[in-house]
């Protein structure tokens, strides 16, 4: 099981908004594949999946805000 947490996007930027999940719960995902799109005041980021497996759980839904270090999803 891999915990997917919000990484540091840019310095001094502690929060981001989840804009779009490229995968749904139950989908297979490969390490390095686009997983989630995150929006900050300055830019939009695509976060690659940190692991290969199946997306088991999505904890932050589209439109919600998330802090650096907070759990976004679980991959098994």
């Amino acid at each position: 099981m891999t915990d997917v947490k919000l990484p540091v996007l840019a310095e001094g930027v502690n929060k981001a908004t989840v804009a779009y999940w490229h995968k749904s719960v139950g989908d297979a995902v490969k390490e390095g594949e686009d997983l989630v799109e995150l929006v900050t005041d300055k830019a939009t980021f695509n976060m690659p999946s940190p692991a290969s497996g199946v997306l088991k759980e999505v904890l932050i839904s589209e439109g919600a805000e998330v802090s650096v270090g907070q759990l976004l999803a679980r991959i098994e």
């Binding site: 990484p7 540091v8 996007l9 908004t17 804009a19 779009y20 686009d34 799109e37 929006v39 830019a43 939009t44 980021f45 695509n46 976060m47 690659p48 940190p50 589209e62 439109g63």
Partner: peptide, 25 residues
């Protein structure tokens, strides 16, 4: 495949890919 968030009309090509690497830390 459009974002649900209104990103202040920030266009699609302005998507920066994050690099997840231990070297970053």
């Amino acid at each position: 495949m459009t974002s649900v968030i209104e990103t202040g009309a920030r266009p699609k090509w302005l998507n920066k890919r994050l690099v997840l690497s231990p070297i970053f830390d």
